[in-house]
Design a protein around this nucleic acid. Structure first.
Length: 318
DNA sequence: AAGTCGGGGTC
DNA sequence: GACCCAGACTT
């Protein structure tokens, strides 16, 4: 049965997979960056940023040599900025420990910051044709439905993923096809079983609509941040760097003071994160700014979080 | 096993 | 609004 599934799925993939830029290469540097960008980030969001990245950083060496701020700037708007920090650290390790050549060994891949088991599986299979599975949100959903195990744990899913891969002739093609199936046919909110190439082998087929998807409800916590706007016609705006941990780690913002209670006035801008609701109160500040920071004439040169960009837009329009 | 970490697409 | 997305890392 496994063989039949492989043939049908591979055939379907080759016939009508989406044409995505990172599917035209097996170069580890390109695959690596695409996989990091795609972590918890939709294909449509990554697509326009993929080519731009390599124009700015044509090689791993150019990453290792660049200041972290340059990587953060290139990452602006992608979110999860820790990923850019990990890329920088990994690039330096590849240069220093692996003589600038991307490691092929699976455990060596796993040892690089930002590369977990699934991303390592993607690189190992796409670049080096090793039989390592990918287990992202798409593949997890497909496997849960395929085996009708909506409550399967990660450990169980990794086992199912490896078993399925072991029956495939081409690990890279199999991994791509599984993700493609989850992204286009076997969606989280919609399952088009009529179009599915492997519905006959799927235990959940035709009843996915009634299957209850377990979804963890995330508590959203309100935060109230006062944003001090020191504006100077000559010198620009005063920015300081966020701490290296926490929200917007390492990014540049006007000085932020966390308020214990919601002020009486309405926030200038409300910025939503996955589990935080940031109420931002722009406050025009007089006098010399205190603390460490710098006057910035052109904010397009530094990495600012999206929420701060929005705040400044609104503040200017007032 | 649960919590932390962004931002945008999509319905 | 709510939910989800080619997850990794820390505790």
């Amino acid at each position: 049965m496994s063989f039949i599934r492989c043939e049908a799925l591979a055939c379907w993939y080759l016939r009508q997979a989406r044409d995505l830029p990172w599917r035209h290469t097996a170069d580890p540097y390109h695959i690596w960056i695409s996989e990091i960008m795609l972590q918890q980030t939709q294909v449509k969001t990554v697509q326009p940023r993929y080519a731009a990245w390599f124009e700015r950083f044509p090689s791993i060496a150019s990453l290792a040599d660049a200041p972290l701020d340059d990587l953060l700037k290139a990452w602006e708007g992608l979110g999860y900025y820790r990923r850019a920090r990990f890329i920088h650290q990994a690039a330096m390790r590849i240069e220093n420990e692996f003589s600038g050549r991307f490691p092929r060994d699976f455990d060596a891949l796993l040892s690089l910051p930002g590369i977990g088991r699934s991303t390592a599986g993607a690189i190992a299979s796409f670049c080096f044709r090793q039989p390592r599975p990918v287990l992202d949100g798409n593949v997890k959903r497909v496997l849960r439905r395929w085996h009708d195990q909506p409550e399967a744990t990660d450990k169980e899913l990794w086992l199912l993923a490896q078993q399925a891969l072991d029956g495939a002739a081409d690990p890279a093609l199999w991994n791509q096809a599984m993700m493609e199936l989850g992204a286009t046919i076997c969606g989280a909110k919609s399952a088009d079983c009529n179009s599915c190439p492997v519905s006959e082998a799927c235990i959940s087929a035709w009843q996915v609509d009634t299957a209850v998807e377990k979804q963890a409800t995330v508590a959203v916590i309100d935060l109230h941040w006062q944003v001090a706007l020191h504006l100077c016609p000559q010198k620009g705006i005063w920015l300081s760097q966020r701490p290296q941990t926490g929200i917007w780690a390492g990014l540049w913002t006007p000085p932020i003071t966390e308020l214990n209670d919601a002020p009486a006035k309405a926030p200038t801008h409300v910025h939503l994160l996955t589990h935080r609701r940031l109420h931002l109160y722009g406050e025009l500040a007089d006098g010399a700014p205190s603390g460490t920071g710098q006057w910035v004439d052109d904010i397009s040169q530094l990495a600012l979080p999206t929420g701060i960009h929005r705040l400044l837009e609104k503040q200017r329009s007032v």
